[in-house]
């Protein structure tokens, strides 16, 4: 039986879709059979981030309404045999799917896949309720901004009251230099407020923008630091214990010598 993960945040634009694409791909890289489900009906974009936009024939609404079989709507990834995408509908809205239907869908997918990664829409309305209906574990994404943390707190509360205890936290787009200067909330500040377990910290990285636009998730880029962070996160999801990466590590050799000199 597979595991159903929902990636959520409350606030928009913090990187739910990017996280979903990267965690999904990260798990696929590890050889797991995974499916990503886009529940952002009406504003779908997981397919764009994955570079699979032109392969969509049927979508999630077609599946739950019985217009097609589940197998027909699943899009096989162009890079990995073991990775699939169930796209959202673009023409309907969030009410086209009910919580009950989402639960059934998750149960069906669970028999086929090791991991089901659900991309949740922003907000706390029907779309959010649908996304978490079938989920067993939740991952909350936030950025080091008070507004995002506030919304994440709200989401954690809602998740807890709907039975998704102990959600895990991803802090996205952190900038160590700014944290050092005291201009940005630190990891510790955020954890102190949210009081949930940390799944990973993703540094702010321009390569994510590039890879998102290309439809190639950053995890596949060996040189990308954000990609490395997402690979670690994927490994932690499978139960491996991976230490947090050193955010300050700068890859330049000059930096390395500088650090070595200051250390001794």
């Amino acid at each position: 039986m597979g595991e159903v993960l929902v990636i959520t945040s409350g606030k928009g634009g913090v990187g739910k879709t990017t996280a979903t694409a990267n965690i999904g791909t990260g798990l696929a890289l590890m050889g797991k059979k995974i499916v990503m489900v886009d529940t952002d009906i009406g504003l779908r974009n997981l397919d764009v981030v994955m570079g699979l936009e032109n392969r969509i024939v049927y979508d999630i609404v077609d599946v739950v309404q019985g217009n097609c079989r589940l197998k027909q709507a699943l899009i096989k990834d162009k890079r990995f045999e073991n990775m699939y995408l169930l796209p959202a509908a673009q023409t309907k809205d969030k009410t086209a799917v009910s919580e009950e239907q989402m639960k059934n869908l998750s149960d069906n997918l669970k028999t086929e896949f090791d991991y089901i990664v659900i991309d949740c829409p922003a907000g706390i309305e029907q779309g959010f309720k649908n996304a978490i209906a079938g989920a067993e574990k939740a991952v909350v994404v936030t950025t080091p901004e008070v507004s995002a943390v506030r919304d994440a707190d709200r989401i954690v509360g809602l998740l807890e009251s709907s039975g998704l205890r102990e959600p895990k936290l991803i802090i996205n787009r952190i900038r160590p230099q700014m944290v050092k200067k005291g201009d940005m909330m630190s990891m510790e500040d955020i954890i102190e407020i949210l009081a949930v377990d940390l799944l990973g910290v993703v540094p702010d990285d321009e390569s994510v923008v590039v890879s998102t636009n290309r439809g190639e998730p950053a995890v596949m880029d060996k040189a990308s630091r954000a990609g490395q962070a997402f690979r670690n996160i994927s490994q932690r999801i499978t139960g491996e214990e991976i230490p947090l990466m050193n955010l300050e590590a700068n890859s330049g050799w000059l930096e390395k010598i500088k650090r070595w000199v200051t250390k001794s």
Partner: peptide, 8 residues
């Protein structure tokens, strides 16, 4: 015995 979160 729990945290009271935003919106509660």
């Amino acid at each position: 015995t729990r945290n009271i979160r935003s919106g509660q």
